[in-house]
Amino acid sequence: MSNNNNNSNQPAVPQAKAGLNKFKMEAAQEVGVNLKEGYNGDLTSREAGSVGGQMVKKMVEAYERNL
């Protein structure tokens, strides 16, 4: 990959960070995961995966609506 930044947790567009955090919080609420601002290392793998999965599901749905 040609990206010089080795930290994959950084958004490609840094200005999008607030929007991504809001999106993540909405997805967590939809799947019933109690996500808090900042550190969430106490989540189980299942909880964290369900939040990520919900985010992907919503992104795919948005993409399909815009086809």
Rank of each mutant, 00 (worst) to 15 (best):
G32K: 08
A62P: 12
N9W: 07
V51I: 14
N3D: 15
V31Q: 08
A28M: 01
N21P: 00
V60G: 04
K17S: 10
N6M: 01
N40R: 12
S2Q: 11
D42V: 04
G19Y: 01
Q29A: 15
E47M: 08
V56R: 09
R65Q: 14
G19I: 01
N66D: 14
E26A: 08
M1W: 04
N3H: 06
G19W: 01
A48S: 15
G52C: 09
G38S: 05
K58E: 09
Y63W: 08
L20I: 15
K24Y: 01
V13W: 07
N7L: 06
E47G: 08
D42W: 02
V13A: 15
G19C: 03
L67N: 13
A18S: 11
V33S: 02
Q10H: 02
E26R: 03
N7A: 09
S45C: 02
G38V: 11
M55K: 05
S2P: 13
F23W: 05
M1G: 15
P14W: 01
K24Q: 13
A28Y: 00
N4V: 12
L67W: 03
N6R: 10
V13H: 15
S2M: 05
G32R: 10
V51S: 08
V31C: 10
K57T: 12
N21S: 11
N7K: 12
N9R: 13
Y39K: 09
N5F: 00
T44E: 13
A62G: 13
A27T: 10
N21Y: 05
G41L: 03
G41C: 09
S45W: 04
M59H: 07
A27M: 05
N4H: 08
Q15N: 13
K24R: 15
V33Y: 00
A27W: 00
N40H: 10
K22R: 14
Y63D: 12
K24S: 13
V33F: 00
M59T: 13
L35A: 04
N34I: 04
E61R: 12
L43P: 12
E26P: 00
M55L: 07
E26G: 02
L20G: 06
N40L: 04
E30Y: 03
K58T: 11
V13G: 11
N5M: 02
N6T: 13
Q54H: 07
G38E: 11
R46Q: 15
V31W: 06
M25V: 01
G32D: 10
G52F: 00
K22V: 02
Y63P: 05
R65S: 13
V56K: 08
N34F: 00
K36W: 01
Q54D: 08
K22G: 02
L67M: 10
E26T: 14
A12T: 14
V60N: 04
N6H: 04
P11Q: 04
S8P: 04
L35G: 03
N4A: 13
R65M: 07
